[in-house]
Design a protein around this nucleic acid. Structure first.
Lengths: 189, 189, 189, 189
DNA sequence: GATGAATGAGTGTTCATTCAT
DNA sequence: GATGAATGAACACTCATTCAT
């Protein structure tokens, strides 16, 4: 019995939520996918909402940690932005389902959605700081850092998903090259 | 000539769908908002799905027409991209609710969502052609046009929504300046 | 179509609630008994709780109105108490199911139960006033009117139910004679 | 010798059942209150039903034993009735929660409820015999003893609970005086 | 054209009970 | 003896859709 029930449920939930979205996904779906009785989910998670929130928190943590752990202080802002683009592309490729969830469920006025946007903002603020660094040291054009950070995130996210949800191959190198050209060409003086 | 029932329902549906999203919105909500009996909606639209699809089609039409009608053949690619950025920022500001719907409901495997992505692609292909023009005439860097177009759309969409759903003022000019810098700085040689 | 759906549901609810109690009764039970779809109940009543409350309110109203409408001002307190005993015995006989509900569901700390006790108190206060009259005019012993009224109600209620839920015949005249003896023998000087 | 698990569970069950009633009380509640794992309850009691039944049996036993142990053969029927009234008032004051359970759960057609009514009847039969004695020796009016016994029980029970569940102080002496007046005034010639 | 009462399949959640350890 | 993770049947409530008027 390798897998704990909790992680079985976790995996099943990612699958189902990304496939159907929060509202259309049912606890029965998730239970069936996890090969677990419905009550078992409720033994481990208080509610559908909580399960979902937990999922997204873990995912965002993974993304931010993945990026932050690789950022080294003495990189130039340019190098840092490159790193983030590359990491984000890889992350979207690897956790496509999670990313679909994020893009589907972040826009709205429910508590859950506000919570998600807060997490997104927290991730974007990592980018924002780098943009500010670059502006401060004169290597970047003088743009509003907040706009730049959401634009950078959005450009990568939508471009990635656009490919991943189409039929095309997810050519990470090609996408990286294009985004690097767009993002850095626009930022660097 | 008062408001036809159909347009009453249409307006109410926009309000309710953007407020609650497709799944959480109920036909009762819409009927109440439109001051119309629930059966009346079914007299005019076959189903909730159809009503919604109709709505989004109209909205996408509005966006694409708005942009295409202003594009003039003898503009340079650079001017065209600027125009699109500006138009898109204005559109998102004006139809915030519709844009939320679009971002919420475009990612998934249901028919409706496939349909939405098809519409999105159709809009993006307008951008794509301009990018190709720019590459062809040597004014743009040589990037994959498809990636560039989805990145351009995504950068604008996410940045706009990020502001519109936060508390900040939607400073269209500032956002435009930033996006122009990012996008054109990166595209233009 | 003689019976309105509402009254069908009402009747079915009385049956089912008195048979099973509030918690064990299910909306499916009630729907089935009323030959109505479950949704129909919710079309007419907001919730199980509300349906139940409505039921009890109607019943208590019936009991109090039945009694109050027959009380005439120039009766002596003794005659009034007799009348109440007789009416209550008749009411319990006629609406046995309702009375079971009342006795089952009035004791506890939930809102619904507090509400029920308030209704009971309101009924008992009718008795209380008569006892006070009797004491004032010297025809009754000097007892605490509140205790007397709840005791009078309780003696009748438990005695009635005791018979009704046993197998015995509900001999209203006999029961009336006994209660009259007990109650008036104890009250009258 | 610490508390045995069984008695821990017993105590917890009394608390929880009286607070929430049979249906709303959960085995988790009881386990938590008893500081015991849920499975442990099932080790000691076959089911929720059985645990509850056991509880009520103990309680009724306590009431009947309390009364019977104090009844002395050469008391007059009048003295015996007085004693019972006094004892019952004290018991209700001391075991309010149990009495709520009794009144809540005794009216219905489930096995458990039939069982409870049987216990109640067994208790009432103690009263009944005394009434018959009193009638036989000519000191009581000639009433149906069964009616009188349930009326006597009911008068005390409802009056007690009415006070105990309201806000008022439970003035045992005052209540006793009133019930004695009512009951004996009505019974005694 | 328009209505709204009626429907019933479907959903999140609860909880008594079991059983492997 | 004791545990608590796991179960799954059951339940209150929702809502898109239908249809008789």
């Amino acid at each position: 019995m390798r897998k704990s029930k909790t992680s079985l449920i976790f995996q099943a939930a990612i699958d189902v939520f990304s496939e159907k979205g929060f509202d259309k996904a049912t606890m029965d779906d998730i239970a069936a996918r996890a090969n677990v009785a419905k009550g078992t989910i409720y033994y481990h998670f208080k509610s559908k909402e909580e399960l979902f929130l937990f999922l997204v928190e873990e995912g965002m943590e993974l993304l931010r940690e993945g990026v932050e752990s690789k950022l080294i202080d003495d990189m130039t802002p340019r190098e840092k932005i490159e790193l983030i683009l590359r990491e984000q592309i890889a992350f979207f490729g690897q956790y496509r389902d999670f990313c679909v969830i994020l893009l589907r469920e972040s826009w709205g006025a429910e508590d859950r959605q506000l919570e998600f946007r807060k997490m997104l903002r927290s991730y974007m603020s990592v980018i924002e700081k780098i943009v500010q660094e670059g502006i401060a040291d004169g290597s970047f054009h003088d743009v509003t850092a907040e706009n730049a950070s959401s634009a950078l995130f959005g450009m990568g996210a939508i471009a990635s998903l656009h490919i991943l949800l189409g039929k095309g191959e997810y050519n990470e190198e090609g996408l990286f090259a294009d985004l690097k050209q767009l993002a850095l060409g626009g930022l660097l003086k």
